[in-house]
């Protein structure tokens, strides 16, 4: 039987943490893209689009991420293809992230005074141009702190993908626990690595929020 030193445990966990980071980036980038589409639907002039986006957000925020992962895993395989865990995990995380980002950004867009819409409309801009040149640039500054803050939830959310068999940090922790019989040490280190990933994000979100608030007070 192989002996594990503390360094072996940490080294293996750090190697697995790469996949946590990759999956987080995929989920965040994909979620931002889909989220932007949902945002446009949510604030659209068409009632059907608004209802669809509202239902989408309610569905993904009102059900557990774990169930979404299972449905993605088993649902995709209904299409008759062998689904690798990373694909099911990415799909579920992207859809889940999108629902939260769309709702966060909607709040930011709605906080832009109505006069801005009217002013840009009076310049003859179409709805897309208004968003592109007037509303989004202003909403973006407001949106940055909560968006960075939500990225912490995405990183933590990736831990659930271990349950459908994707090997990232949490899964590596389980495997190492089974090999070493040292759950206290292993899960302690797992928690510390997650903390090292999430804490800087949380702090920078708080920092940005304070900085932006100061900017607001100056106006």
């Amino acid at each position: 039987m192989m002996e594990f030193s503390t360094w072996d445990i940490v080294r293996n966990l750090l190697l697995a943490a790469r996949w946590t980071i990759v999956l987080s980036l995929v989920a965040f980038a994909g979620g931002a893209t889909v989220g932007l589409v949902i945002l446009f639907l949510r604030i659209s002039k068409q009632k059907a689009a608004r209802v669809f986006a509202g239902g989408y957000i309610e569905l993904f925020q009102g059900t557990p991420l774990l169930m979404q992962l299972f449905l993605s895993f088993f649902g995709l395989s209904l299409l008759g293809v062998e689904v690798p865990a990373w694909l099911a995990a990415s799909v579920a995380l992207i859809l889940w992230t999108a629902s939260f980002l769309a709702e966060i950004w909607r709040g930011c867009v709605e906080s832009i005074p109505k006069g801005q819409w009217e002013a840009s409309a009076s310049l003859g801009m179409g709805r897309f141009e208004q968003m592109r040149h007037v509303i989004l640039p202003q909403a973006l500054t407001i949106a940055i702190p909560p968006t960075v803050g939500f990225s912490v939830q995405v990183v933590k959310g990736t831990s659930l993908t271990s349950i459908i068999g994707f090997t990232e940090l949490a899964k590596a922790g389980q495997v190492l626990t089974n090999a070493t019989f040292m759950p206290f040490t292993v899960y302690g280190f797992v928690a510390l690595i997650y903390f090292a990933l999430c804490f800087p994000l949380s702090k920078s979100s708080q920092f940005l929020e304070r900085k932006l608030n100061v900017a607001h007070r100056d106006h």
């Binding site: 922790g173 759950p183 206290f184 899960y187 928690a191 999430c198 949380s202």
Partner: peptide
């Protein structure tokens, strides 16, 4: 507060259920 808010619930659960018995 910082420790709990910056680690996944799943790991907290595993730590309590599998880790604490060794204490």
């Amino acid at each position: 507060v910082e420790l709990i808010r910056n680690t996944p619930f799943l790991i907290q659960l595993f730590f309590i259920f599998f880790g604490l018995p060794s204490l």
